[in-house]
Simulated assay, not measured.
Amino acid sequence: MIRGLTYCRRVLRADYPIKTDRLLLRPFTTDDTADVWAYQRQQDVARYLLWEPRDRDQVRDAVAQMAEETGLGAEGDCLSLAVVSPELDAVVGQVELVWHSEANRQAEVGYIFNPDYQGKGLATEAAREVLRLGFEDLGLHRIIGRCNALNAASARLMERLGMRREAHFLQNTQVKGVWRDELVYAILRSEWQDRP
């Protein structure tokens, strides 16, 4: 066992829930559908994502998929966690860690939050815990984050996490019929360990 992690059928899984100062991070369940629909149906949320605002059936399917993403066993696997506010007894967002390379010990962090709970530092708190999990528990070497170049809030969040901007790709991806610029941020394990 490595600090809060166990090997189960060759899949690395955390002990849940993971507690931060104000939040609980845990796997999704089908009971989370209404809370997730509350934000995934919003145009402001989908604006910078690959998908359009989702209807209830699409969210139900997305939550069912995320409920299966509870561990990292191979490259390409995604760990998806519901971010729960115990005070509100509600899912306020989601965070994920996608394993890109076993040989190079690299992954990618991602997050989506309900706009009703933005501006309170909750996304920063949850994403910081995912970075901690990646570096301290999984022994990763490098974690990246990506966002639409127009998504200034997401870029600022990554900067608050201590990630540095490594690239600004011009019109590298077509999303919803429009070419978009993408920012790539990254942080190394050594930078994580040296943060104040």
Rank of each mutant, 00 (worst) to 15 (best):
G4L: 06
L5F: 15
L5D: 08
T6V: 14
R10W: 12
R10H: 14
V11W: 02
V11K: 08
L12R: 13
A14K: 04
A14N: 08
Y16V: 10
K19A: 15
T20W: 03
T20D: 02
T20G: 01
L24K: 09
L24C: 10
L25T: 04
R26L: 01
P27T: 06
T30A: 14
T33C: 13
Q40I: 02
Q43H: 14
D44G: 13
V45E: 00
A46S: 15
A46T: 08
R47Q: 12
L49N: 02
L50C: 07
E52I: 06
E52F: 11
E52R: 13
D57Y: 10
V59D: 06
V63N: 01
E68K: 14
E69F: 04
G71Y: 04
L72H: 03
G76V: 03
D77Q: 05
L79N: 00
L79P: 00
S80M: 12
L81A: 04
L81F: 02
L81H: 01
V84W: 07
V84P: 00
S85F: 04
A90E: 10
V92N: 00
V92P: 01
V98Q: 11
S101H: 07
E102R: 15
E102P: 02
A103H: 12
A103E: 14
R105H: 14
R105Y: 11
A107T: 06
E108R: 10
G110E: 07
Y117V: 14
Y117R: 11
Q118V: 08
Q118N: 14
G119D: 10
A123R: 00
T124G: 09
T124V: 08
A126R: 01
A126V: 05
A126I: 04
R128A: 14
E129I: 01
E136F: 04
L138A: 03
L140W: 02
L140T: 04
R142E: 05
I144L: 06
I144A: 07
G145R: 01
R146N: 09
C147Y: 09
N148G: 01
L150F: 09
N151R: 02
A152T: 13
A153Q: 14
S154I: 03
A155Y: 09
A155W: 11
R160D: 09
L161D: 03
L161N: 02
R165K: 15
E166M: 06
A167W: 02
F169A: 13
F169G: 05
Q171N: 12
T173K: 13
T173S: 12
V175R: 13
G177I: 03
G177D: 04
G177W: 03
V178D: 08
R180V: 12
A186R: 04
S190D: 14
W192H: 03
Q193S: 13
Q193G: 07
